[in-house]
Amino acid sequence: MINKLEIDSVQLQFNSKTILSDVYLKCETGKITGLIGRNGTGKTSLIRIIYGTLIPNHKSIRLNEQNIQTPYKREELISYLPQSNYIPKQLRLKRIFSDFELEYSFFESYFTDFKTKYNSTINQLSGGQRRLVESYVLIKSNSKFVLLDEPFSHLTPLLIESIKELIIEEKVNKGFLITDHLYNHIVGINDDLYLLANQKTHLVKNMQEIASLGYIKEE
């Protein structure tokens, strides 16, 4: 069964300044949905609205045509990777993988640098290693939808490619919504792509359409 998560009629204002206006976005299981846009256009705000931790002036969020009010309270439905670290720094990797019901042996076979870190606290990792762990456990989680805000930050090119491969593998089981300033990594793996510009989302199909909205220069 294909599950469909939709948000529309989004209105968001801060101090009388309009950030988002009549925004619509759809994410489906089995697909990778990309969200790109210049800094300050409201990408993170939109993701937080979808997750339910930012209350806008108006919104409508639906799962399979049914309204949902607080998605973040349903772990089986949705998970969210924020730009900032979210796993408590004192937790050991052993505990983290246990809590997410994931096999550490599979993780360390994929990322061999972690073979000696099973009992390490997440605070003992480098910034890139910490981002990798936080992204991995959500990508492999049991949620129907995973929202990833800047998942490639602090990662080496090799690790970025590994994370992209995992996302592609896991989309069979869930839907992904990804935003990142490294837009080339999103454009390369997305099924659907939205550009946030002029306070609205635009479903775009090619680089020409992206350029016409002023996000990149036309070649």
Rank of each mutant, 00 (worst) to 15 (best):
G214M: 09
I7L: 14
Q11T: 13
Q124H: 08
K17A: 07
Q208I: 08
E75D: 15
N123P: 13
T112H: 13
P82Q: 14
D149V: 14
T179K: 03
G42S: 11
H58C: 12
E103M: 12
L193H: 03
R95E: 15
G30Y: 00
I163D: 00
M1C: 07
N64M: 05
I139P: 03
N15G: 12
R130Q: 05
N3H: 13
Q199D: 10
G128T: 04
E76W: 14
V10Q: 05
N67I: 15
I78Y: 04
Q83S: 09
N142H: 08
I168R: 01
S109V: 07
D149S: 15
T156A: 12
K144N: 11
N142S: 09
Y86A: 04
T116V: 06
S143V: 04
S79R: 06
K26L: 13
I189Q: 02
V187T: 11
E209W: 10
S9D: 07
T179H: 02
E165K: 01
G52E: 09
S153A: 13
E219Y: 11
M207A: 15
N15W: 11
D149I: 15
T29R: 05
Y24K: 14
E65W: 11
E6W: 11
T179W: 02
K59H: 14
E101M: 13
A197S: 14
I7R: 06
R131Y: 00
C27T: 13
N142C: 06
Q129K: 01
S16A: 08
G188R: 11
P157Q: 09
M207N: 15
D180R: 02
G37T: 06
I210W: 02
L182A: 08
L166Q: 00
L193W: 01
D180W: 03
K89T: 02
I68C: 03
Y24T: 13
K144M: 07
I78C: 03
Y118V: 13
G37M: 02
R130C: 00
Q13F: 06
F176Y: 04
T201L: 02
S135C: 04
A211D: 15
K4W: 06
G37E: 01
E28I: 10
L125N: 04
Y183D: 08
F107M: 01
I50L: 14
E170S: 13
I32H: 02
T201P: 05
K115W: 08
M1T: 08
P157K: 09
